Simulated scan of single mutants.
Amino acid sequence: MTVLEEYERTTNGKPTVEGALHAFLDTDLDLYIEGGDAWKNYAALGAQVANTPEWGAELMDKHFDPVVRRLIDLLKKALPDRAEEDIFWGYHFVTGALLLTLARTGRMDKLSGGLCKSDDFAAVKARMAAGFKEVCKVRT
């Protein structure tokens, strides 16, 4: 939350999609990149918990929704002409990609023949905004 608030202050209330998503994602992804296997394992466990409807959803609602709502507010400011539903769907797809990444299933490694690595958090960071922006494109 602190990083999101600081980001908005530095942009004078004019955030970008890239900046908002990096403020949201980078603190955690950097920790998982630099923190070693213990943090990567913690992230994988968190990804599994987040995808458990019974008790995982309740934990996510309680502990993460305020931060997500703050991100959504920034994204609405960054894309004032986009439909609100597209911003929520964009967040949904970003979060899905994030959780799949954190789970480190090895699927990307296998599908890509080793070209992409499931734990390449830097590659994910570099691509998240592009995926979000595609979902929020103006439709004709």
Rank of each mutant, 00 (worst) to 15 (best):
I33M: 12
I33D: 06
I33H: 03
E34S: 13
E34C: 05
E34D: 14
D37M: 10
D37Y: 01
A38C: 06
A38Y: 08
A38H: 11
A38P: 00
W39K: 15
K40E: 12
K40C: 10
N41W: 08
N41H: 12
Y42H: 13
Y42V: 15
A43F: 04
A43K: 04
A44G: 08
G46P: 05
A47D: 04
A47C: 04
Q48Y: 09
Q48C: 12
Q48I: 14
Q48T: 15
V49S: 05
N51G: 15
P53Y: 05
P53N: 05
E54H: 07
E54M: 09
E54L: 14
W55C: 07
G56L: 03
G56F: 05
A57C: 04
E58H: 06
E58N: 07
L59N: 04
M60A: 10
D61H: 10
D61N: 11
H63Y: 14
H63C: 06
F64P: 02
F64G: 00
F64I: 15
D65Y: 11
D65R: 15
V68T: 13
R70N: 12
R70L: 07
R70I: 04
R70E: 11
L71F: 05
L74I: 05
L74V: 04
L74T: 03
L75A: 08
K76Q: 09
K76G: 02
K77G: 01
K77E: 03
A78K: 01
A78Q: 02
L79H: 01
L79Q: 08
P80K: 04
P80H: 02
D81G: 04
D81K: 13
R82F: 01
R82L: 01
A83F: 00
E84L: 09
E84N: 11
E85W: 05
E85A: 13
E85V: 13
E85G: 06
I87P: 00
I87Y: 01
F88W: 15
F88I: 10
F88V: 13
F88M: 08
W89I: 15
W89D: 11
Y91W: 10
Y91C: 04
H92Y: 12
F93T: 12
V94Y: 00
T95N: 14
T95L: 11
G96Y: 05
A97K: 04
L98T: 02
L98I: 02
L99I: 02
L99W: 08
L99Y: 12
L99D: 01
L100Y: 06
L100C: 07
L100A: 15
L100M: 12
L100E: 11
L100V: 10
L100Q: 11
T101F: 02
T101P: 00
T101D: 02
L102Q: 02
L102H: 00
L102K: 02
L102W: 06
L102E: 02
A103N: 06
T105Q: 10
G106N: 03
R107C: 10
R107Q: 14
